[in-house]
Design a protein around this nucleic acid. Structure first.
Lengths: 244, 244
DNA sequence: CCTCGTTATTCTCATACTGAGATTATCTCA
DNA sequence: TGAGATAATCTCAGTATGAGAATAACGAGG
């Protein structure tokens, strides 16, 4: 049997059918606090419960595209969104309907369009990371993994610039790190560090139009540089409990 | 309709059927060179081409378990194998038979049982990472991602100890880093660094029975410590080309 | 207008980590 | 027994770090 004959005779039903979904952990910063996009489920299972936005992949649709589509359906965001794949989850009983394997994605957005409830969601909203409701499925676990990934990525990639506007001040960038890591940082050391990493930010030569709302000088404006990796990295303060 | 009624009426065929496979990138070190386990495909598509070991997940089988099973089928290894999930791949045309989403796994093994051809493989063998044949599907891309992950993980986790025996010398550990990173390392600095990371290794108080085959003193023996993260991390030398 | 509190930016300084090289002692092999 | 190899330490200069302080520019309220 030739390879083409083999393929013509091939029966897809011979293999166990599984549904594949994408779930998106979309993060933004509101009022200095990290927020995640959640949707309220309109249908069983877990009707009425909040969950990560997501849905089934479509025939002919790549995983990355499916994630971007799901995110756009809930937020209308299509521009300036960083999106990357995280892990996949496939415990046999994670969805009561059938065998579902879910590929999770992480998305960062600088501004925050008010979310819009998608087709199968009753509602959609940004939730502060420290005021989460109980989530459907195994989405708490997925969210936890996503947060850890986001925090780690800030250390060695210029990802933080995806949270701020086209141009930004060093202090704005610092507030991104503080929000995602959930820690206060030493302003002086942070400033020195950012400027010492080649290619992280480049000066625009401009400054802000005025000082901060509570005073202080005008800050210099920067834009993202061309570095893809930060070297040296910006490491989080000691995490004694995570080491052992 | 109650939730239970809804589930009873639920039709799994309403969603596009996708097959889910796991592909395993199994690495070991032979003669100081990193090797990857490959199988020769016995059936179309890509019959006769070498590929990563893998296969369809079974009903009721978790992803991690499927990966461990596939690895065991090819190598017989079940003990002392570190295995972890990498990325998922779902381009619509990545398999000519049907829509297949593949979840890739990374496995490390300290010793190297001669591989045994599994059910649907014509042959199986360890290939040196710098002498790879052309691979089936998108497996070259998967392997590339796996190598980068492995190299990165050596930096901040004690993963390297999964490549050596129960007890080991600092030099053995260094040869693991050199093989995976593909770089020679400064023996003195490496030694200092390993011993300065809390919990990475702990002394057994023993030494090797004899010196190296080409001379040199007996080396002190260590075993893996209880650290889960290395702090400070062992960073690879500058990678200028990867930064921009 | 003037002062106070706030913020951006830059320094200082002690401590820690790094790469490169050298040193010493111990072993195998010829 | 001597030569070469290797394990384990040490030195030293360069660089990165955290903590704190100094300087200066600004907004707001009297």
């Amino acid at each position: 049997m030739s390879e083409s004959e083999y393929l013509a005779a091939y029966d897809p039903r011979a293999f166990p059918a599984v549904a594949v979904t994408v779930d998106v952990v979309a993060l933004t910063i509101i009022g200095g606090v990290l927020h995640v996009l959640l949707v309220e489920r309109g249908e069983p299972p877990y009707a009425g419960r909040w969950a990560l936005p997501g849905g089934f992949i479509r025939p002919g649709e790549d995983l990355d595209r499916a994630a971007a589509r799901e995110l756009a359906e809930e937020t209308g965001m299509t521009q300036r969104v960083h999106i990357e794949q995280l892990a996949s989850y496939g415990a046999p009983d994670r969805d009561p309907r059938m065998r579902i394997v879910s590929v999770s994605y992480l998305a960062f957005a600088p501004d925050l369009p008010d979310p819009q409830a998608g087709s199968d969601a009753a509602d959609a909203a940004w939730y502060g990371i420290d005021r989460l409701p109980k989530l459907a499925f195994d989405h708490e676990r997925i969210l936890g993994h996503a947060l850890e990934r986001a925090r780690a990525k800030l250390e060695y990639t210029p990802l933080a610039t995806a949270f701020v506007g086209e141009t930004f001040t060093i202090s704005e960038l610092r507030r991104v790190y503080e929000a995602v890591w959930g820690l206060p940082l030493h302003a002086g050391n942070f400033h020195r560090k950012i400027l010492s990493v080649p290619g992280f930010v480049e000066s625009t030569g401009e400054t802000t139009e005025s000082g901060g709302s509570r005073g202080g000088p005008r800050a210099k404006l920067y834009r993202a540089g061309d570095a893809r990796l930060l070297h040296p990295a910006l490491l989080r303060p000691e995490r004694e409990e995570e080491i052992r």
